[in-house]
Simulated scan of single mutants.
Amino acid sequence: MSKAEPMRIQILGKEYLVACPDEEREALFASAEFLTEKMKEIRDNGKVVGADRIAVMAALNMAHELLGHRSSKDDYQFDVSKRIRALQDKIDVALNQGRQLEL
């Protein structure tokens, strides 16, 4: 991994200097653009005033979305695990029946 070099990004028209490794620059720019769009949506809605408050609301909205995806993923993984266990039980039953026929 390369050394983190300072780079300038803009979020909602304000410039920030952020240390970032070369290989992560594109991702940082994409993140800044994504955040700017989310903040513009909140600002343009007109219910939240002030850049700090807009930033906090955008962060809360993104955290909520992220946690929602995690919850869905956890539910899916639990369902898959449950199905795998059921298949293992069926295989065990079938193998045991096959052994009984051999005797």
Rank of each mutant, 00 (worst) to 15 (best):
M1R: 04
S2L: 05
A4H: 01
A4D: 01
A4P: 03
P6V: 08
M7C: 12
R8Y: 01
R8D: 07
I9R: 01
L12Y: 09
G13D: 04
G13H: 05
K14Y: 05
E15L: 04
Y16T: 00
L17N: 12
L17W: 09
V18Q: 01
P21H: 00
D22F: 08
D22N: 10
E23G: 00
E23V: 00
R25A: 06
L28H: 03
L28P: 03
L28E: 01
F29G: 00
A30D: 15
S31Y: 04
A32S: 01
F34S: 11
F34L: 11
L35T: 11
L35P: 09
L35R: 09
E37C: 12
E37A: 15
E41C: 09
E41F: 07
R43T: 02
D44M: 05
N45Q: 07
G46D: 02
K47C: 03
K47S: 06
V48P: 02
V48H: 01
V49A: 03
V49P: 03
V49L: 04
G50R: 01
A51S: 09
R53G: 09
R53T: 07
I54L: 06
I54M: 05
I54H: 03
A55H: 03
A55V: 03
A55D: 02
V56T: 13
V56Q: 05
M57K: 08
A58R: 05
L60P: 06
L66S: 12
L67N: 13
G68N: 02
R70M: 15
S71Q: 14
S72H: 10
K73R: 08
K73F: 11
Y76R: 15
Q77S: 12
F78H: 06
D79Q: 12
D79P: 07
D79H: 10
V80E: 08
S81L: 10
S81Q: 10
K82R: 12
K82H: 10
R83C: 10
R85E: 06
R85N: 08
A86M: 03
A86W: 01
L87G: 07
L87R: 08
L87Y: 09
D89R: 14
D89F: 13
D89K: 14
I91W: 05
I91G: 04
I91V: 13
D92M: 12
D92N: 13
D92I: 12
L95T: 10
N96D: 15
Q97C: 10
G98N: 12
R99Y: 04
Q100F: 11
L101V: 12
E102D: 15
E102G: 14
